[in-house]
Design a protein around this nucleic acid. Sequence first.
RNA 1: GGCUCCAUGGUCAAGCGGUUAAGACGUCGCCCUCUCAAGGCGAAAUCAGGGGUUCGAUUCCCCUUGGAGCUGCCA
Length: 490
Amino acid sequence: MSDIRTRFAPSPTGYMHLGGLRTALYAYLFAKQRGGKFILRIEDTDQEREVPGAVELIYEDMHKAGLDYDEGPDVGGDYGPYIQSRRKDLYLPYAMQLVESGAAYPCFCTKEELQARRDKATAKGEQWKYDKHCLHIDKAEAKRRMESGEPYVIRQNIPETGVASFEDLLYGHVETECAILDDNVLIKQDGLPTYNFANVIDDHLMKISHVIRGTEYLSSTPKYNLLYEAFGWQPPTYMHLPVVMKDATRKLSKRHGDPTFEDLLEQGYVRDAIINFIALLGWAPKDDREFFTLPELVEVFDTDGLSKSPAIFNTDKLRWFNSEYIKKMDFEDYLKTATPWFDKALQGKGIDYRRLAELMHGRTEVFSQVPEMVSFLAELPDYQIDLYSHKKMKTDPALSLTVLKLALTRAAALQDFTEDALKESLMELAAENEWKTGQVMWPVRVALSGLPSTPGGATEIAYLLGKDETLQRLAIGINFLEQFQSMRQS
RNA sequence: GGCUCCAUGGUCAAGCGGUUAAGACGUCGCCCUCUCAAGGCGAAAUCAGGGGUUCGAUUCCCCUUGGAGCUGCCA
C-alpha cells in the first residue's frame, strides 16, 4: 500500500457542483492509480452557511458518481472524525502553540471596528490590510484579556518581509511577497477554525500527501506553507485545478441556474457519460481516445495531460457523449430506463413500448427529451397545410389528398395490420401510380403525426398507433386537405 | 486598485524550436433513406497583439491586451 492519500473536502452548502465533481474525480483518480487512499472530509466550520441535509447529499452524490472513498464520515477510518465540526476542540491547542511561538497572536478588534477601518481605507482608495494592531499588545495583558472572557480571534502573524512560496504540481513555482499578505484569522470568535487553519491542521493530521483542489486556493497556499513551517511540519504536495466555466467570463454556478450533477442525472444524462465528459474537461489523454469508464480513467489518468486554463462546460459535447452511451446501452436497459419517460406522455395509451424503444434507442440524446418526441402518439398535434408540401419528396397538398384517400382504403382493407404488410401495400400503391416512395410515405407520415420529423417512418408510426387510430388520423388528414382545397377554390 | 494565475478554431484540445498546426463536439455540404436521427464521405474554421532570443518561433523571454482567482471571523 502506498502512502498516497488525497482528499475531497466539500462544504455542505447544497448540491454537488460540476467543478467540485471534477476536482473530486481527479483526486480520486490520482490516489487510486497509485494504490493510495481517497478520503472524504466535510468542511463545515461555517455554521451559518450550513444547509440541512447537505452532508447526506454529498455522500449520495459521491456514491452516484462512483467515487467511493476509503475514509470518510459515513465509512470511518483511522483519522476521524471526518467532519470538521466534530473536531472543533482540536484546533485551538494548535493555534495556541502558534501563539506561543509568535507565529500567531490573539486579536481583540471587533468586527465593527474592523469594518469601520476597512471602509475608511476603501473610501480613500487605499488597500485594506489588517494593521497588526493587536500584535503589539503585551503578552501577559493579552493572556489576561483572553482569560477574562473577552471575545477574541487568533490571527496568523505573517512576516513583514520576505516571500512565501510553494511548488504546485500543475502551476510550478508560485510565490508572493509576505508584505502584501494579510494576517488571516485562524480561529474565529466562536472558537471554530477558519478554512485557512482547519485545512492545514486536518491535512497534516490525516496524513494527506497530495492536496488536490480548485485554483481559488492557489494564491493563499503560500500562506498555508508558512503555517506548516511554523509547526515544523512537512507540507503536502499541492495540485490546483482550473475553474470550470459557464462561458468565457462566468464560472459555472448554481446561483445562475447552471446544472448540478444531480440536475444532470434527473434530466436523463447517464452517469458514465457525465464522468467521461467531466474527465475530459481539463484533461486530455496521450492519444486520441475519448471513451473511458471510471476504471479505465484510473489506468490512464496522468497529471501532464492536465490543462492550466479554465474550461467552458460545453453542453453540446455532453449531449453527444450521452447519446453515445445510450446507444451502447443494452436494449433491455434502454427499455427499462425509457419506460418512465414514455409514461410521461403515453401512459395508458396502449402503445407497444418495446417497438417504440427500438425506434427511439438510436435517437435518444437525453432522456428528458423523450416525452416530447413521442407525445404525438398520444395526441395528433395541430399542423399547417404546408407540411404537405415537400420539395424533396415531390409532394404538395393536391397529390397528398389523392394519396391519402387511396392509402386509407388500402389500410382499411388490411386484415393483418403489421408494418410489413402496410409497407408492402403502400409501396405497391406507389408503383401502380408511378409515384416515388416518398410521395406516398410523406403525406401518410404527416397525416399520422402532424410533424416534420418523427422517430420512425410512416408505417412504423402506423403500427404504433394501431389500425383504428391510423384510419382515424388518415381521415382527419383527408378532411383537412379537402377543406383547404375548397377554400382555395372559393 | 493590489497580488497570483492563464491565453492554439465557436467549444474541448494535441503540440513541448523546424509539422501541410492532430483529433473530437458543433456548423455546413454530399451519400444513404418511408420523415428525422444514426451511419459513411467531405468542407469551412485556431496559434490575441507587439517586441526580443534564435539560422528558424505556436513552442523560450519581456511588454501590451484580454480573462480568471484571491483580496471575509466563506470555503
